[in-house]
């Protein structure tokens, strides 16, 4: 089982157990991003996390966005990069840039 498949299975299991779940997927990277495009992070409404979209630098910010997407149902495309003040706040120290797509698991 690939790690991406594993995260999907975990997310599906949470959803089947009745918890709202959002999926975050790295869709584009520039520079020294630790996880390639296609890497996934699943987030549940109670705050469970599976997988990763970075080396841990932006997971907190992505999890916050995921909670919002669970409530609204609307997907989001998040930008993280060194030119982005928010990225400094969440500590993307590696100097990479990436885009993360966040969607609700309906």
């Amino acid at each position: 089982m690939s790690d991406s498949e594993d995260v999907l299975a975990t997310a599906a299991a949470w959803r089947a157990a009745g918890e709202p779940v959002a999926l975050a997927t790295v869709v584009e990277t520039w520079g020294s991003s630790p996880r390639p495009a296609g890497s996934r992070l699943a987030v549940s409404a109670t705050g469970k996390l599976a997988g990763s979209v970075s080396g841990g630098c932006i997971e907190g910010a992505v999890a916050d966005a995921a909670q919002q997407t669970m409530r609204t149902g609307s997907p989001q495309l998040l930008d993280f990069g060194i030119s982005d003040e928010r990225a400094w706040e969440v500590g993307l120290a590696c100097g990479g840039k990436l885009k993360v797509f966040v969607e609700k698991l309906a």
Binding site: M1, S2, E5, T25, V27, P36, A37
Partner: peptide
């Protein structure tokens, strides 16, 4: 076995391969 981005008719698409292990 690599994800890709594509713009078609002004819309951005993410192409995510799921190969067997």
């Amino acid at each position: 076995d690599a994800a890709a981005n594509l713009t078609l008719d002004g819309e951005a698409w993410f192409v995510h391969p799921h190969n067997p292990p």
